[in-house]
Design a protein around this nucleic acid. Sequence first.
DNA 1: GCATTGAATTTTGCATTCAAAATGCTAGCA
DNA 2: TGCTAGCATTTTGAATGCAAAATTCAATGC
Lengths: 236, 236
Amino acid sequence: MATVIPDSTPEQDSGQRIARRSLHDEVVERLRDLIVEGELEPGKRVPERVLCERFGISRTPLREALKVLASEGLVELLPNRGAVVAPLTVVELDEIIEVMVALEGLAGLLAASRMSDAGIVEVKALHYEMLACHARADLHSYFKLNQAIHLAIIEGAGNATLVQTYGALNGRIRRFRYMANLSGARWDHAVAEHEEILAALTRRDSALLSRLLSDHLRNKYQHLKQAYEAEAQAAE
Amino acid sequence: MATVIPDSTPEQDSGQRIARRSLHDEVVERLRDLIVEGELEPGKRVPERVLCERFGISRTPLREALKVLASEGLVELLPNRGAVVAPLTVVELDEIIEVMVALEGLAGLLAASRMSDAGIVEVKALHYEMLACHARADLHSYFKLNQAIHLAIIEGAGNATLVQTYGALNGRIRRFRYMANLSGARWDHAVAEHEEILAALTRRDSALLSRLLSDHLRNKYQHLKQAYEAEAQAAE
DNA sequence: GCATTGAATTTTGCATTCAAAATGCTAGCA
DNA sequence: TGCTAGCATTTTGAATGCAAAATTCAATGC
């Protein structure tokens, strides 16, 4: 995450050209999106020239952005041979999840005691919105609300470093979320887990919330991993 | 951490000029050292021009390095006003330790079951070397061995992402270690904790090792924090 | 004497340029 | 036909150049 103190330029996303705030920071975000959304494929070279033209910028800010993304682990820099989108092996995926499970646990522990009542109410609202999406089988909105709930809980831990650390890891695996295609049973189960999570948060049961969040991520990952391995196999 | 695949250039640190591997990556390391060692003071501006001359490089690689360090949280980029060494507030220190405690706990959990016998033997050797330093009251060497032990355990968890994540956070607080001046009683206590840690690791007691490592870091931090707050107060 | 304004200087952000490395292509040879 | 050497092209890494923003500082007015 680029620690740039943003100036107060408003978020006018109307133009496709880059103009607002520091250029390189904008480019970092754009590139990250391209990678997360899969437009830049893992293992493939990041075409400097093409992207420069596409963004209407010179190579300097683009290269700065690549360095930042490399430090986040999203791309790999090969000396004198440019940048490639970091491919994520199953081993790395396992590693990242292992760490994230611990961080979710920490978030639960802290959020249960530190989150404001208003925060809990907000999570509750998001939860019910998410249930609505489940009922409508609106997977895309469900994912977004799901992410929003987890983010709200992590932010509720009142630890900006935790938010940042979790976010960096989440960024590396987020692109796989695009593949996860919840089957009916698994989806129902996930929703049931969320019910428990909400209940534990409402009761401010630290130990339970911690455990539930960790388990939930582990379970989610089981599914994600199966989908990934299936895809990886299919890709051969 | 800059994810650069290093080429096989040997680590010849003889000359003060930068020549080996990708320049920007070298600069990142050098700048990090300057910050960690306190030569660049927190809150102060990072003088681009001066550092360029000092390193004998142009502004481009230096600026790239600053972007990377910003993403690590070591510096803050102020748009149009350059970079400053990120000052670490007590609140941020608290946050970082909170996350690191969780990561140490995870490391203990994993290392107890995954570490090789050879790895445990190595930790044991480091441990006794450290005891020797304690006996000789050689604080500097003690610190180095202490760090080596913790690193060995964290690496013993067999999770590169954990190593990297922990390392990034550790980098942000390492400069404070330079202040920590272990009092006799506290030092003895720390050594006693290390004895317990080694015993738990030898017995491969996951739960215990996890708890001990977390507690140990928390305790260490108590001391560190007091020293920091005393210093901060004295600085006024 | 102090605050304010505005010009000179410095610093920053990005584009451009240049040299070195890597890549691709062609031709020559077995 | 297949392989390799050598050249041309492209791409990368870093230096330099240039315009805009910020800072400094002195002169002016109060």
